[in-house]
Computed example of a mutant assay.
Amino acid sequence: YSLGLLIIEITTGEKNCPENNQPSVRNFIDNVQKNWTTDYITSKYSILTAYGLHQVKQCIKIGLECVTIDRKGRPTIEKIIDTLKGIN
């Protein structure tokens, strides 16, 4: 779960800071899932190539898979590594 949060934070540059008046972890995850679309990514990082866009989307996807509520639905570290190797 924590690995997923780290991947999301590193990829998006956004931080999950559940302090006073800050969103909960679940709100943070929901906002990333809702807002980090292809259009949003390309508008935020207009210099990305198609391949760079693919990399960002894959990392967000991995991060979101890691933070699913049902721990049985989370990918293994081996699957994460294999997916990341495929990004190269």
Rank of each mutant, 00 (worst) to 15 (best):
T37P: 04
E78K: 12
C59K: 10
K79E: 15
Q55W: 08
L64M: 06
T42N: 07
D82R: 06
T49M: 06
P75C: 08
L84M: 15
I81P: 00
K44E: 15
I87P: 00
I77L: 15
E65N: 11
T37W: 06
L53C: 08
A50D: 13
V67F: 04
T83E: 15
E65S: 12
D70L: 07
I60Y: 05
K61E: 09
I60E: 03
S43H: 10
G73P: 00
E65Q: 13
D82I: 07
I41T: 04
I87G: 00
Q55R: 09
I60V: 14
I80A: 07
T37M: 04
D70P: 01
R71G: 02
E78M: 10
T49Y: 05
T42R: 14
G52F: 06
D39Y: 01
L53Y: 02
W36D: 03
I60T: 04
L84N: 02
D70R: 05
V67E: 07
H54Y: 15
N88K: 15
W36Q: 02
T49C: 06
T42F: 00
T68M: 11
K61I: 00
W36E: 05
T42M: 12
T37G: 04
G73S: 13
E78R: 08
Y51H: 15
V67Y: 02
K85P: 00
T38M: 06
C66V: 04
L48C: 06
N88P: 00
I60R: 01
K72P: 00
G73E: 15
S46W: 07
T76P: 01
K61F: 06
G52S: 10
I47T: 14
T76E: 08
S46E: 15
I81H: 11
V67I: 13
I80R: 01
E65G: 02
